[in-house]
C-alpha cells in the first residue's frame, strides 16, 4: 500500500502552545504541502495551513510568532489553536518527521 497521509490542521480551528516543531534536516517539503522522507520513502500531504506552518518553521520563524499570526488571521480561540497545534506535532512525531 502506498503511504500517503493527510495532516489535519484545518483553517477553522488552529491552535497554539509551547513549540518544538523542528523537522529532520533531510525531510523535503514543497510549497504545495508535500512532505517527503527520503530515508523511508514516505510521502505526506499537508493542508495549506499545515504547509504554511512547516514552511515558516523551516525558515526558523518563532512558534509564538506563527501562532500569533494564525490567531490574527483566523477565527479561532487560543485554546483550540493549542489543541490543534499539539495534534499536528503528535502527527509529525508519529510519522518520524521531527528531529
Amino acid at each position: 500500500m502506498t503511504t500517503f497521509y493527510r495532516l489535519n490542521l484545518l483553517p477553522p480551528h488552529p491552535s497554539l502552545p509551547f513549540f518544538r516543531m523542528k523537522l529532520k534536516p533531510n525531510i523535503a517539503t514543497s510549497d504545495a504541502g508535500f512532505i517527503f522522507n527520503p530515508a523511508t520513502g514516505d510521502s505526506f500531504a499537508a493542508n495549506p495551513l499545515a504547509a504554511d506552518i512547516l514552511a515558516r518553521t523551516k525558515t526558523g520563524q518563532d512558534a509564538a510568532a506563527i501562532k500569533a499570526d494564525i490567531l490574527e488571521r483566523y477565527d479561532v480561540a487560543p485554546g483550540q489553536l493549542e489543541k490543534d497545534w499539539d495534534d499536528l506535532l503528535a502527527q509529525l512525531r508519529d510519522f518520524n518527521l521531527l528531529d
Partner: peptide
C-alpha cells in the same frame, strides 16, 4: 528501494529510491 505497492505474490509494482 522501498516497495510502495506489491502484487499478491509480493512483487514490487511501484517503488521509490531511498537515502539511508
Amino acid at each position: 528501494m522501498r516497495k510502495l505497492t506489491i502484487t499478491d505474490r509480493g512483487k514490487a509494482w511501484a517503488g521509490i529510491t531511498l537515502a539511508d
